[in-house]
């Protein structure tokens, strides 16, 4: 490994991983919706991925597996302003106000109801309110960048926040993360657990970012990008972005009502 890793080095690795994936698919391998854990352009992954294959568990063999159920969250676990990140302090945060909304669905396209959606993000200047954060962009005393909500009966969630800024990181020289919001989501089964990131359309940093590019399937990567949705924009207040989330992983279909 060289000491100084440049964007050009990373670009080359990203292109190679992408080409290798395209070839696998052309040769008949299945589409990969998720990143490979050993995606080397994201250097932090090198020592943190298992080398042994995962051990498969066929959930249809045992409906009693605890992983086929999910922890419960309710009104006690959230407060009124948790889904409005612009109202959690005495003053208004700096930045472009946005409304982010969408539906939480399972692989069958059915709404996932009453489940917890948690988000965290940098402020408009690209700075996290986290002690370990080294980027010297200004902190915003009126913005923590943490939100929570429960999905409604149609699986909808909705957050009001400010658009986060891009920020530098130390993967390689000149590494910048495209603006993104981190999402953590529960499904009706623990097997459906998802932590991911939502991006904004047309960000020029997309091709350079080894985290986004770790999703080597072009269509899958597109699903991480929200769509501008004028119908979600609130007049004189915020711009709207729509982003639906589809949970992977098996669930206990035999307990579903009406099946």
């Amino acid at each position: 490994m060289t000491d100084v890793l440049t964007q050009a080095d990373i670009d080359e690795e990203i292109a190679a991983a992408h080409a290798a994936y395209e070839k696998r698919v052309a040769d008949g391998a299945p589409v990969e919706h998720h990143p490979r854990r050993d995606y080397r352009p994201y250097r932090s992954s090198v020592l943190r991925h298992p080398r042994q294959p995962l051990v498969a568990i066929d959930v249809s063999q045992d409906p009693e597996l605890i992983e086929l159920s999910s922890p419960a969250f309710g009104e006690r676990d959230i407060t009124e302003v948790d889904n409005d990140l612009t109202r959690q302090h005495t003053g208004e945060p700096i930045g472009e106000r946005i409304t982010v909304s969408g539906r939480l669905l399972d692989r069958d396209g059915r709404p996932v109801r009453g489940q917890l959606v948690e988000i965290w993000q940098a402020n408009a200047a690209g700075r996290y309110a986290h002690r370990r954060e080294q980027h010297d962009a200004p902190l915003d005393p009126h913005f923590t960048g943490v939100g929570r909500t429960l999905t409604d009966t149609d699986g909808h969630y909705r957050f009001t926040t400010v658009r986060p800024g891009p920020y530098p990181w130390r993967n390689h020289v000149g590494a910048w993360r495209p603006a993104h919001i981190h999402f953590s989501v529960f499904g009706s089964a623990f097997t459906q657990r998802l932590v991911t990131q939502m991006y904004f359309p047309h960000d020029p940093l997309f091709p350079y970012d080894p985290i986004l590019q770790s999703v080597t399937d072009d269509a899958a990567r597109q699903r991480l990008v929200a769509a501008y949705d004028h119908s979600l924009s609130v007049p004189e207040f915020s711009l709207g972005y729509r982003w639906d989330i589809v949970l992977d992983g098996p669930r206990a279909t035999w307990t579903e009502e009406g099946r």
Partner: peptide
Amino acid sequence: ALPTPSHTVGPFYGH
């Protein structure tokens, strides 16, 4: 429905 890809939790989930 096609699944939303997973991403790392990153370093800044702590708050």
